[in-house]
Design a protein around this nucleic acid. Sequence first.
DNA 1: CCAAAAACATGCAGGCTTGACTGTTTGTTT
DNA 2: AAACAAACAGTCAAGCCTGCATGTTTTTGG
Lengths: 207, 207
Amino acid sequence: MFVPGHPDGMLTRTPQRERSRATQLRLLEATVDCLVEHGWSGTTTTLIAQKAGVSRGAQLHHYPTKAALVLAAVEHLAQRRAEEIRAEALRLPPGRIDQVIDLLASAFTGPLYVAALEVWVAGRTEPELRQALEPLEARVGRDLYRLTVDLLGADDSRPPVREAVQATLDLLRGLGVANLLSDDSARRQTIIAGWTRQLAAVLDPRP
Amino acid sequence: MFVPGHPDGMLTRTPQRERSRATQLRLLEATVDCLVEHGWSGTTTTLIAQKAGVSRGAQLHHYPTKAALVLAAVEHLAQRRAEEIRAEALRLPPGRIDQVIDLLASAFTGPLYVAALEVWVAGRTEPELRQALEPLEARVGRDLYRLTVDLLGADDSRPPVREAVQATLDLLRGLGVANLLSDDSARRQTIIAGWTRQLAAVLDPRP
DNA sequence: CCAAAAACATGCAGGCTTGACTGTTTGTTT
DNA sequence: AAACAAACAGTCAAGCCTGCATGTTTTTGG
């Protein structure tokens, strides 16, 4: 039975749950790092364990198979991406469309997006991964859409607005891909600025 | 010495060059197929040789290393993509913006784009591949831009037009990525239709 | 305090991939 | 026709990745 205030002296160093969660987190973070640094095919279980400072036995204890580890990492990744965006969104003046777009654009060029893209592309041909990815990404996509509509203060009920917001997100996805190999920021800024003007015109509810 | 009309009887079955080129082509096509079917990490040299119907020795004779093979395949891939687009562009009524966009959209959802994306993403973390990819993709990107401007009959000199055309291509890239896991065609059609209207307004040169 | 369970550590085997090596067939050149 | 070069075929060794198996430490519960 669990007693919150149980005096344990110096005997109980760290509870098991905490230790477990800690090494699991180290493994998940290491997996994401691996994806960013070495890509999907370079992400091996041994390398992950090494980078996490976790022995191979401990790794297999928590995640018996590579698929289990990666899937957990993907879940963790989605969570972190959402957190990051929401955190930055909080300190944003309302009504500034350009700032919202800039924020999203940076989310689509950061390392977390790169890792997500690696998994996304790999999932196309890895059945196990794909199966788990499909519902997850559908959820994440919807959430991101809603967040965007919210941040923009847009009127979701008009179809052109829905289309424009979705197009914005798809455009940012594409710009993120273009940014993989060569640094594209100059060109990207120009394009984003132009699109932001267009978007403002569509969002503006003047009949 | 080479004599064009040399009567060789039935002795010379097939010239060496032709044979060489034929097996090389088989290998390159097989590589692209492998990328589409099994993704980057599933594209192994043995599988390629097997799928091409080429012995391992012959494969290593023509392409001593995997990098050499893949790079040749990428070159081949870019060529095929360009050919495909140009071929379809020829039988297109002029002045129809929506048809041009549809054509490009289909180019960004077909198997050739998928293969290119696999290599593109893998190139991020494979130095040898990346180095060869950077100039190639810059060229391909420019060519595609010019082709698009040409097909649209757009006035390239006005900056907003340049931005809009580039944004269009980036949007299509993004839609292509979104189409990897789940079939997105319904949503895609809607977005493209909306985008096309916007684009038409920008391209329209009425001062 | 002791036993059970969870967490952790290390070594090992099977399978796969890559590139090299040796030998054979086919085409070219003199 | 004979020598030479290119294309082709099959096999092999080294290295890596994954997952299992056995043993050790730490925490938990009686």
